[in-house]
């Protein structure tokens, strides 16, 4: 699939924004500035970017506890996200959701999710809405390899199939459900599971933006055409722990340096576009600089921003009570 220059820039910007955002969150969390749990997406950017580049606001996604990347790729405001992670009033969710519940329904981002396997049933509903309301939209559930073993996920495969929904299940397999290896925890294979539910299954190298983007284009087009759900098994790695503070003693000591050196999605992307002379190096460097500075700016703003107050504690529980 041939990408335009604009699309390439957009893809790179998305991935770079996610990386810069996550690196900065990592830094801030380590310094003790961020409360609660955060789960970082660094290393996995090509998946979120590869799928979401095909999507519009009418399309919905449901994310996971590792949701910053999907949120950024789906168009959530980075400043609002950073404020949210710092628990500020001006956060995307008013400081009430935090890292695990970033959402922006207007952008079709139905939420990061604190419950492993929480998203797929919701995505069946979003796909049903799209089908019933004839919006032409699709709905994508991103799930981890851990969630791929949850009943909610497997039930959703079945429901999406029998209702012939414009739904896509993206199993983002970073090799670990918390500290447990997916090589051990997943019985059979993701592709066999797709086959078992009678839907097309694809496996793709999640470090390779172009590969992800191509497969994503295919399954999304299929869903838009009313041909039903698909499953995509994305294999890649995360650079940080399950959550921030995870010492990652379960990983081989050279695993991450090796991945960063050979399989970094941003480096692979740069190499590919520079070799093919699709973009200029100076342009990419310029983007990096601009994004790093933007992330730094929103972080500084978030740290200085006001917290929600007691008046916010009981609002937004109901529309009306």
């Amino acid at each position: 699939m041939q990408l335009s220059r604009d699309e390439l820039v957009r893809a790179y910007r998305t991935m770079r924004t996610i990386r810069a955002f996550e690196d900065r969150v990592h830094e801030e969390f380590s310094a003790g500035n961020i409360p609660g749990f955060v789960h970082l997406y660094a290393g996995e950017e090509a998946s979120a970017a590869g799928f979401c580049l095909h999507l519009e606001d009418r399309d919905n996604i449901a994310s996971t506890h590792r949701g910053h990347g999907h949120s950024i790729a789906k168009g959530c405001d980075v400043r609002g996200m950073m404020h949210e992670i710092f628990g500020r009033k001006e956060g995307l969710c008013g400081g009430k959701g935090g890292s695990m519940h970033i959402a922006d329904l207007e952008k079709g981002m139905m939420g990061a999710n604190g419950i492993v396997g929480g998203g797929p049933p919701l995505i069946c509903g979003a796909a049903l809405s799209a089908k019933y309301l004839k919006t032409g939209g699709v709905a994508i559930a991103f799930v981890g390899d851990g969630a791929s073993n949850q009943g909610t996920t497997l039930e959703s495969y079945n429901l999406a199939k029998v209702w012939n929904l414009p739904a896509i299940f993206v199993v983002e397999d970073n090799g670990y459900a918390e500290s447990t290896a997916s090589a051990w925890s997943v019985g059979g294979s993701q592709l066999d599971r797709a086959k078992g539910f009678g839907m097309p299954g694809h496996q793709v190298d999640g470090h390779d933006f172009f590969a992800v983007h191509e497969v994503a284009g295919e399954v999304i087009a299929r869903a838009r055409a009313g041909e039903g759900p698909s499953l995509v098994h994305v294999k890649f790695s995360r650079y940080y722990g399950h959550f921030e503070g995870d010492a990652m003693t379960y990983r081989a000591s050279d695993e991450i340096p090796r991945l960063r050196k050979d399989r970094d999605c941003l480096e692979l992307f740069r190499k590919r576009v520079l070799e093919a002379a699709l973009l200029e190096e100076s342009e990419l460097d310029g983007i990096d600089e601009e994004i790093n500075s933007h992330v730094a700016q929103v972080t500084d703003e978030a740290k200085a921003a006001p917290m929600p107050t007691e008046r916010d504690l009981l609002t937004d529980v109901y529309m009306r009570y």
Binding site: L122, A126, S129, Y132, S156, L159
Partner: peptide
């Protein structure tokens, strides 16, 4: 039940 109750929630959040 997990899938369709969740689907109902998701559909409710997206216009139905």
């Amino acid at each position: 039940e997990s899938a369709f109750i969740g689907a109902a929630a998701g559909a409710a959040a997206t216009g139905l």
